[in-house]
Amino acid sequence: MHDGYAIETERLTRKFGEIVAVNSVSLRIKYGEIFGLLGPNGAGKTTLTHILCTILPPTSGTAKVVGHDVCKEPDEVRSSIGIVFQEPSLDSNLTGWENLDFHGRMYGMSSEERKARIEEVLSLVGLTNRANSLVKTYSGGMKRRLEIARGLMHRPKILFLDEPTLGLDAQTRRVVWEQIEKLNQTEKITIVLTTHYIEEADYLCDRVGIIDMGRIVALDTPQALKDKLEGDVVYLKVDNLKKFLQIFQRSGLVKGVKVTSDSLQLQVSNGSKTIPKIIETVRRKGGQVHEVSLKRPSLEDVFINFTGKAIREEGPDAASRFRMPGHWRR
């Protein structure tokens, strides 16, 4: 039984000049959970992770990882965490075994410790039969799994995964998800992952923090976040969005309405029964329906509800724009 939280932050902020990359973030992440930071590129996910991993100092606020202050006790934090960065950081001219052995040496593990642990982590990620192959012969998914294994070598209490399936095909992504779930269960390890894949956060995470413009705008379990929308969502493409936004705001047909991109997002209790009435209202008011669709609430809808926009590529995070390094030294 652990006391306190795996991670605690209080009004954590990081600025790059006039750019506020992380904006007054207060978090409590429990031991043993898979916690996801969901948001588009540029939202502040990587910058926040870099602060928690002691790569970047905060501009203001505080953060504790496994009870250690990231500014006052960086060595203690680093010895307690494992990291898998967005960018590949394996030595392609070494074998899988040699990459893991080198990492173990960096952490002062004895020869016997390294041998036993390498066998364990390779088995965990399903790479035992490729241990002696050069990494340059690995597929993209195998490289990601080896990086996860490397992050586990020194038995960290927390594993940070920054966009762990970025660039992988759908089938390989699913394999990596299964490996992450297995690690969480068998190693009893806290996992913090960043992602802009809605399905990834929904499938993997015990709790999700939706991050936008450096702020956590919503935080709960995936199901609880979806339940907050209270009903079905109807997407309606019509002429003159502003006009029909005002019409439906005054209408008793819907529980909520907002403009998202080129559509109206309507919250309704029963979509299948309400859509014919919505279409009739548009026609009666002199409009034309170009497209209508019905969805049960998803994390995508939750994100749109809290941010007013869909998740999309928005350029690199502030840390990347300022060319922050993708590694640190212990």
Score class of each variant (00 low, 15 high):
residue 1 M to C: 06
residue 8 E to Q: 15
residue 10 E to P: 01
residue 11 R to G: 12
residue 11 R to L: 11
residue 20 V to N: 05
residue 20 V to T: 15
residue 26 S to T: 15
residue 30 K to M: 07
residue 31 Y to M: 00
residue 36 G to N: 02
residue 39 G to D: 07
residue 39 G to P: 09
residue 41 N to D: 14
residue 46 T to Y: 08
residue 46 T to I: 09
residue 46 T to M: 04
residue 51 I to T: 11
residue 52 L to Q: 00
residue 59 T to N: 12
residue 61 G to N: 12
residue 70 V to H: 07
residue 71 C to S: 14
residue 79 S to W: 07
residue 81 I to Y: 05
residue 82 G to I: 08
residue 86 Q to G: 09
residue 95 T to E: 04
residue 95 T to P: 00
residue 99 N to A: 11
residue 101 D to H: 11
residue 106 M to K: 04
residue 114 R to A: 00
residue 116 A to W: 05
residue 117 R to H: 04
residue 125 V to S: 06
residue 129 N to T: 14
residue 144 R to H: 10
residue 146 L to F: 04
residue 148 I to M: 08
residue 149 A to C: 04
residue 151 G to K: 00
residue 151 G to E: 00
residue 154 H to M: 02
residue 154 H to G: 03
residue 161 L to R: 02
residue 164 P to V: 09
residue 165 T to W: 11
residue 166 L to V: 14
residue 172 T to L: 06
residue 172 T to V: 14
residue 173 R to K: 13
residue 175 V to F: 08
residue 181 E to S: 12
residue 188 K to D: 14
residue 196 H to K: 10
residue 199 E to L: 02
residue 203 Y to T: 05
residue 206 D to W: 03
residue 212 D to M: 02
residue 214 G to H: 13
residue 220 D to F: 08
residue 224 A to T: 05
residue 224 A to G: 02
residue 234 V to Y: 07
residue 235 Y to I: 01
residue 236 L to K: 05
residue 244 F to E: 03
residue 245 L to R: 05
residue 247 I to K: 06
residue 248 F to E: 02
residue 250 R to K: 15
residue 253 L to C: 03
residue 264 L to D: 03
residue 265 Q to A: 11
residue 267 Q to C: 02
residue 273 K to P: 04
residue 280 E to R: 13
residue 281 T to D: 06
residue 285 K to T: 05
residue 286 G to V: 10
residue 290 H to N: 11
residue 301 D to Y: 03
residue 301 D to R: 02
residue 303 F to A: 00
residue 307 T to R: 02
residue 308 G to N: 12
residue 308 G to S: 11
residue 313 E to T: 10
residue 315 G to T: 12
residue 324 M to A: 14
residue 325 P to N: 09
